[in-house]
Design a protein around this nucleic acid. Sequence first.
RNA 1: CGGGAUGUAGCUCAGCUUGGUAGAGCGCUGCGUUUGGGACGCAGAAGUCGCAGGUUCAAAUCCUGUCAUCCCGACCA
Length: 488
Amino acid sequence: MPTPANPGRLVMERIPSKSADLSEWYQAVCYQAELVSQAPVRGCLVLRPYGMGLWERLVAELDRRFKETGHENAYFPLLIPESLLLKEAEHVEGFAPEVAWVTEGGTEKLTERLAIRPTSEVIVGVMYAEWIQSYRDLPLLINQWANVMRWEKRTRPFLRTAEFLWQEGHTAHATEGEAAEEVARMLEVYREVAEDVCGVPVYKGEKSPSERFAGANHTYSIEALMPDGRALQSGTSHELGQNFARAYDITFAAEDQTQQYAWTTSWGMSWRMLGALIMTHGDDRGLRIPPAMAPTEVVIVPIPRGDTTRLDEAARELYRACKAAGLRVKLDDRPGQSPGYKFNEWDLRGVPIRLELGNRDLDAGVATLVRRDRAVKEEGQKQQVPLGEVVAFIPTVLEQIQHSLTAQARTFLQDHTFATLDREEFFRLLRERAGMVDVPWCGRPECEAAVKEATSASTRNMREPARAERCVPCGEPARYQAYFAQSY
RNA sequence: CGGGAUGUAGCUCAGCUUGGUAGAGCGCUGCGUUUGGGACGCAGAAGUCGCAGGUUCAAAUCCUGUCAUCCCGACCA
């Protein structure tokens, strides 16, 4: 098996088996499916057109929902003066180890260092202080699509890179209750996009204090489970209380004529979600992209033999018909590659439906429709569909594929979630990296630290109430029901 | 930040021990035959051997330095 001293190695060999080595498989698929390339910069990723296509699908689905829930997009600067960053103590402490700094401009050394944003609460807070004067200015509901940078020690495509693409919502409210509602609303948007669009089932819950966002009062997350039994945090939503409002002086005149600090929130989802999608659905042949997320839903592969005049015209006609029906379709009429090569390539790229069109089909007046969610030669993988009906039939099949991929993922999550009340079994499951271990928990940081020490697993998120009296790891009174797992 | 490795053609690598014409496979280009699950033949293009010094008649090869990347850990969307 290749150990990628240079990941280009993974570009030429056939991909390794997914079950044998998830990490090898994952990297090979990311490079070979042409989602990303390694950049000549440490820790950074080049998003290739196909990867960008995936990201654009996610952006479209999220952005539509943000607008529907009353948010507007804006853009804030990449750089944050050090003095501003220092104002919220907990926040600084949390991010300090991973901030990259700009110290020179042109040939001049700067008098004040500029941080490359690891997140934008600070710069947004400063502007909100200026914009918010009255309760009539609230709520202020803004989202930004941006890149951020965190000087990560160890990186993996999508899951952890120094620079990454994400969206960050920043809102300000007159009351704590409204802020709490906002945080819950956006977490639900994330759940919906993860499950209904990406086909990645998740658990919603609150983060424990040790896993909380630096400077937040409450952090909520959605957590997915990867095939190797590790959890992946896929979206977060934070109640920042009045912490940032105090640090950056975001105050407003309330209806009762008192001056008050605003209640702020922030929430984010990154291209990490794509990593979750890739690992969740992929198989030994490569990606399997849920149709709702697929940059290309249908690919047409003509099978040339002898004179191709009739075939060329039929393929173009089929392409036009798909296009007219609003499908994201590609016609692969490259002359240089054999059909078999193309089949494998499009399988690798995870396109949900392939339409094969050859003389045999044309003579019978059909196209051969091939589903990516079925194994090669599996019952139902290929079917003949009359040419006159194929375009109308495709949406039904796409929907079936979306459902079947989602159902498989949900079954996996259920089969790898263990509710136990037995202390020994709890530790054993975590050590074996069995999946999500769902137990009554006391909520004490010391208890969580002890579990981490023993198993390298920690709480992923939690909810109330506990389903039993006693905390499973330590035996103290239980307050929460918590998912424990090893994480990415 | 600790431990380990690697920089030679677009990619993966050999060559270095023992200094002496720069190599292979894949990919790429051209022509021909092919094409229903990764086709084949012939011809061809392509490299300041990471960078900087040093030793030597001569350095991909030996020495010194330097830069970069990757992997494994501890920390993190």
